[in-house]
């Protein structure tokens, strides 16, 4: 029963992922007074790409072909750590947040390799920038999570969520605020959103993620796009689960789950609105300001960790 629920949560994250990206795009369009595309369009696109033949550069080796697969597998696995509607996850009770973060790193590593294998300057550029951003983002990401883990005295995500659920909503400490801010900043960087990266641009001066996937087409491209959508969704779900878990079902009863699902949708919607507002309002940072951005996040998360010793007492 629990297994089924956990698998269902993972499926939610995977299958709902394209929708999240589309809704954000739609919201942004609305903010910019455009109509925007249908929110179902990503599904159609994935379907189309999956059926198409694949164009492979002549320099490409097996790594080029392997990269999207590993990326997708790793991202799905990472999604398995995140509780959505129930304070548990497929892998959430045994694996911890370190594993989650490093699963994402695994995917990114291979995607960068795939980008380099294309043999074009764009791929190298994207990979190189991605290397910078991700290497700097890892520390605040983990430190932010550590601060919560220290408070909860657990390292498994389900346990952390369960601990937060047990706390009073109004009993939020400075640690939570600091950690949330830094994690949110990291999430922007990790998922390649504004102001770190612009998911809609193909301008060589600015692009990171899009540079890396330039040589991909067909099913491979579909997997990559899908994987990044899953990543975005999982990050949102993670933020929700860690900082606003209230309302999550702790038992397997149908009623509780329904409420949790609805609440989840509401919370996600809120975050999506926030995200689209940010993306519309903020200009993309110059490449070499990104380290400063992540530096701020690191400082906040380090502070969060230091504050834990006072909060614990």
């Amino acid at each position: 029963m629990k297994i089924a629920l956990d698998i269902l949560q993972v499926l939610m994250l995977i299958l709902g992922a394209p929708l999240v990206g589309a809704i954000i795009a739609r919201l942004k369009a609305r903010l910019q007074r455009r109509r925007g595309a249908s929110i179902w369009r990503p599904y159609a696109e994935l379907f189309k790409l999956l059926r198409k033949e694949e164009l492979v550069p002549p320099t490409a080796s097996a790594v080029f072909r392997l990269a999207p697969i590993v990326l997708f597998g790793a991202t799905v696995c990472a999604a398995g750590f995140v509780p959505v509607v129930h304070a548990s996850a497929l892998l959430g009770s045994r694996g911890d947040f370190f594993l989650l973060v490093y699963m994402l790193a695994l995917g990114r590593f291979f995607l960068s390799l795939g980008a380099l294998d294309g043999g074009s300057a764009f791929g190298g550029m994207g990979a190189s920038r991605e290397a910078l951003v991700s290497s700097l983002a890892e520390a605040p990401f983990l430190l932010g999570l550590v601060s919560i883990a220290v408070l909860a005295a657990r390292a498994d995500i389900a346990g952390m969520v369960a601990w937060t659920l047990g706390q009073d909503v109004f009993n939020i400490s400075a640690v939570h605020i600091l950690a949330f801010t830094s994690l949110a900043m990291v999430a922007l960087a990790e998922t390649g959103r504004m102001p770190v990266d612009n998911p809609t641009t193909h301008l060589e001066l600015t692009m990171i993620h899009e540079g890396m996937v330039l040589e991909y087409s067909g099913p491979s491209l579909a997997l990559i796009e899908w994987a990044s959508a899953i990543k975005l969704h999982a990050m949102l779900a993670l933020l929700i689960a860690l900082f606003f878990p209230w309302g999550m079902a702790s038992s397997g009863s149908g009623w509780g789950l329904t409420v949790a699902l609805l609440l989840y949708c509401a919370k996600t919607a809120l975050l999506m609105v926030l995200l689209s507002v940010i993306e519309s309002a903020v200009a993309k940072l110059r490449m070499y300001l990104v380290p400063d951005f992540l530096g701020v996040a690191s400082a906040l998360s380090a502070l969060a960790v230091i504050f834990t010793i006072w909060v614990k007492r």
Partner: peptide, 13 residues
């Protein structure tokens, strides 16, 4: 997902 991959064609970078 590897099952999805079917045909591929070489194309210049």
């Amino acid at each position: 997902v590897a099952l999805f991959k079917r045909r591929e064609r070489l194309a210049r970078t």
